[in-house]
Write a protein that binds this DNA or RNA. Structure first.
Lengths: 125, 125
DNA sequence: TGCATATATGAACAGACGTTCATACGATAT
DNA sequence: ATATCGTATGAACGTCTGTTCATATATGCA
């Protein structure tokens, strides 16, 4: 076990660490808790079938709301809600041209995210 | 508009496309629907605060279940459930040493995923 | 002004999800 | 054997979430 023998607290592994050193390393790396939270949010937003299809489509072409809806076979309302969610995480951006709203991915990082994701996923097929 | 004038189907934008050409491009890119589904699953799994903290920690050090639990201040049961979920998507892997189970990330792609994710997230801070 | 089209949004409902609690399993030590 | 420790797992419960439905906003056209 390790050095300080304090009172038991959790129900897992009492209170001491099996590998104190390792844990300290991780603690330091985790200092930016805020960033990790946002990262989880980002993944969560992309972790929905409809939203990821939308994001993937937009990684290929700039598209308007109703084309997205028809392409994916999803209602216009659902697409609009999804786009709002994506917008809130700054994952997509749009411009208006008359009645039509054209959406695109907000930056290239998302495309890279897809590429890395696919590389992992390909090994599961 | 475009060629085939069929009967209205959806409620969005009738049935025709605003940009037929673009939509065809995306259709081709989307051929591997299975991969996109798995990608959504992967993102969804990583889109949970507890699971992403676990994955992040494991991207720094190989850790046992109870150290993860203490480090994150989460119950051992919750960690175990989370690890199972991560395992099912082949995101983590483990080895047993006596009573203790040591977990690591399954491959480097996940680390790259984090890096790309952080690059996006940093612009939100 | 009135009407149609494209998009946005609020409320509500059904299903999914993460945690907790209790318990089971496997390994070590006495 | 039995106790203990680390881990795994099933059930249950409360919460969150994505879709639908109805409606609102906004732009263009007659």
């Amino acid at each position: 076990m390790s050095e300080k023998a304090a009172q038991p607290v959790g129900d897992a592994c009492e209170i001491q660490f099996v590998d104190e050193g390792k844990v300290e390393n991780v603690r330091r790396a985790m200092k930016s808790a805020e960033a990790i939270g946002l990262l989880a949010e980002t993944f969560r937003i992309l972790g929905d079938p409809t939203r990821i299809k939308i994001a993937f489509a937009l990684s290929k072409e700039e598209l308007c709301v109703c084309d997205i809806a028809n392409l994916l076979g999803v209602s216009q309302s659902a697409v609009s809600h999804s786009l709002r969610t994506l917008r809130q995480m700054k994952l997509v951006r749009f411009r208006r041209e008359g009645k039509i709203a054209y959406y695109t991915l907000d930056d290239e990082h998302i495309v890279n995210l897809f590429d890395e994701g696919f590389r992992h996923v390909e090994e599961l097929l």
